[in-house]
């Protein structure tokens, strides 16, 4: 058990994270998704820390702490990141929503039905409104200006990496 404990710890922490997130999200009646994700992550993280203290991995202190800090902590963070994206896809991904809609109907879904439900113009308006409300865009004299710059570095990094890997900055180029 002690030998396998370092391996079990991040997986068990992830299980606590997932369970915690579901319970918190349901308890809040499906509101505050991101908050429930953060709470689940903290719960799992606390469980991981406790697990590391109960059974320190390995007898050599250096080996024990290198495993705990260099392997199990990033491993738990990586697994939690995967879980966040998995859960988030079901919440907000257009692709998953369209697929769910198509898969639910044996007679198929017409293009016009999809266009009606996922109206590009409507989604665009919702997005614009959300960005204005959050202060990321500012509407002044009928023109949109960049407001908060929090997304700019993220956008720059992602477009830079796209150029490096795919050789183009956008899927529409």
């Amino acid at each position: 058990m002690v030998i396998w404990w370092p391996l079990i710890a991040p997986v068990a922490a992830l299980a606590i994270n997932v369970l915690g997130q579901i319970v918190v999200f349901r308890w809040q009646h499906g509101r505050h998704f991101l908050r429930s994700i953060a709470l689940g992550f903290l719960l799992g993280g606390a469980a991981l820390m406790i697990a590391q203290c109960i059974y320190p991995p390995g007898s050599d202190p250096f080996e024990a702490w290198s495993k705990a800090l260099l392997v199990n902590l990033p491993c738990y963070a990586a697994l939690s990141y995967c879980f966040f994206n998995f859960a988030n896809l079901g919440q907000s991904s257009i692709r998953v929503r369209i697929y769910a809609r198509v898969a639910a109907r044996s007679d198929g879904v017409s293009v016009s039905e999809i266009a009606r439900e996922y109206n590009e113009a409507m989604l665009m308006e919702m997005r614009l409104q959300r960005l204005v409300e959050s202060g990321d865009l500012v509407l002044r004299d009928g023109r949109y200006f960049l407001g908060r710059k929090r997304f700019v570095p993220i956008a720059k990094v992602i477009f830079g990496i796209k150029r490096l890997i795919l050789g183009k900055g956008s899927e529409f180029e």
Binding site: L131, L137, L146, K149, A155, I158, L166
Partner: peptide, 16 residues
């Protein structure tokens, strides 16, 4: 996220 564009990030970049 590299493969498919994010509408929000595309718009922010355009505004920038």
């Amino acid at each position: 996220a590299f493969e498919a564009d994010s509408p929000t990030l595309s718009l922010i970049r355009h505004a920038h």
